[in-house]
Amino acid sequence: MSARRRRGPSWRLLWILPAGLSLLAGLDAALLLLGVPAPVSAARLPDVHGMLMVLGFVGTLIALERATALAKWYGFIAPGLLGLGGIALLADPVPLVAAKVLLVAGTAAFTLIYIPLWRRQYDAPLLVQLLGAGLGCAGSVIWLTQATMDHVLPWLIGFVVLTIAAERVELARITMGPNAGNRLLVHAWTITIALVIGVIFPDAGAILLGLALLAMVAWLIVHDIARRTIRAKGAARYMAACILSGYVWLAVAGVALLFGYPDAQPAYDAIVHAVFLGYTISMIMAHATTILPAVLHIDLPYRAAFWVPAAVLQLSLIVRLWIGDGLAQPIGWQVGGVLGVIALLLFVVTAVTSAILGPPKKNEKRRDAAPARVAASHPVSSRVPTTSRPAADTPEGQE
């Protein structure tokens, strides 16, 4: 047993707790928005559902992973502020403006993390991540000045899309070629330009954003190693299936944007959930068994049970977007939404159970072991060494 494993979970587990709380509160808010019974009915939960999920949950996770790569104490300010902002959002006694300010500060601190990372390694995918973080910060600033999310979500879409796409390119340098980073940077600037145009000309910006997303998705699907590992077994196939599913849902959002600015509820709902559930959560499900061990020093072995929440998530999106949004059947919208909540809760339960049970037996491990080449499809294990030395259990990476 390694020394790291004997030390037990990392102190960074503290930063996961507010992210998990934001996730649970966001799911509760989703049930309230669907008009179905929910465990908690706090007054402003439905109004902050989007920010709880995108910045409180996803943003904190990504910022924590980047802070781990930086391995400096000040890097953890960003996930700390984002997590605290998520808690403030769900606490009714805290003024909403105070929660918004915390999120602005958190996204600004997250953007600043990339400056020392850039000095450590001059890399095009890192620039794309910096641009994505800047878009997330812009979205939080816009939300500070207004009450609704209509003009905020496009910037949050840019944040998650560019961040995850840059991670994928970092991992597939061998298959994508040496110029892959520069090509992604072109896609990233096209998406950013579309967002800026959309501020003045909403329909034109939406159409351009749809075209940019489709172009980037087509390029990623062609070059991503997941196209090869989908033919493997066990963990490799599971990860590839989640990754390719994420690309499909991002393409769905791109097609929907070609019809112009989504001012009608069905189109808006379809785009938002295709990106933030179909694309983002599918990618999180794909990489969780690598992210958590690398960041938290907690074993999270792959088990076949992980297929269940992944399959329920895809089913929920089909029901919600096709029957609910496409065919305008409210029952489809509700059933699909509830299934999405169930999928996320199932994934959390599966992950916690797998971590508690520990590594599977040797014969099961041999059956589910991924080929050596699948290491290239893991974002944290491959990325942390490229931007920093392996972090230990202290902020400076020292014993």
Rank of each mutant, 00 (worst) to 15 (best):
A109M: 03
W143Q: 04
P116D: 15
V94H: 02
A88W: 00
V104Y: 15
W155P: 05
L135C: 08
T163A: 09
V152T: 11
K100D: 15
A124D: 15
L153G: 08
M149W: 11
L131P: 01
R168W: 07
V101D: 13
L171K: 04
L112H: 01
V169E: 10
L117E: 15
E170K: 00
E170H: 06
T107H: 01
L127I: 01
A147N: 12
Y122C: 02
A105D: 04
P116F: 13
D123C: 10
I87Q: 00
L89K: 07
R120M: 04
L153P: 06
L130C: 10
H151V: 02
A133I: 00
D92G: 10
W118F: 10
V141P: 03
V101E: 13
L144K: 04
G158P: 05
C137F: 13
G85L: 07
A147W: 07
G106Q: 10
P116K: 13
P154D: 15
I164N: 12
I87R: 00
R120L: 03
G86S: 05
L144V: 03
V152E: 13
A91V: 11
M149F: 11
K100I: 00
G86R: 01
P95Y: 09
R168I: 00
M149G: 03
R168F: 08
R168P: 01
L103A: 08
E167M: 11
D150M: 11
C137H: 09
N179S: 13
L102N: 01
F110W: 12
R119V: 03
A124Y: 15
L112P: 00
P125L: 06
V169W: 03
I113T: 02
L96Q: 14
L96I: 09
A99T: 12
G85Q: 07
W143K: 05
V97E: 14
D92Y: 11
K100H: 14
A124V: 06
L90S: 04
E170T: 00
Q129V: 00
D150I: 04
V160R: 00
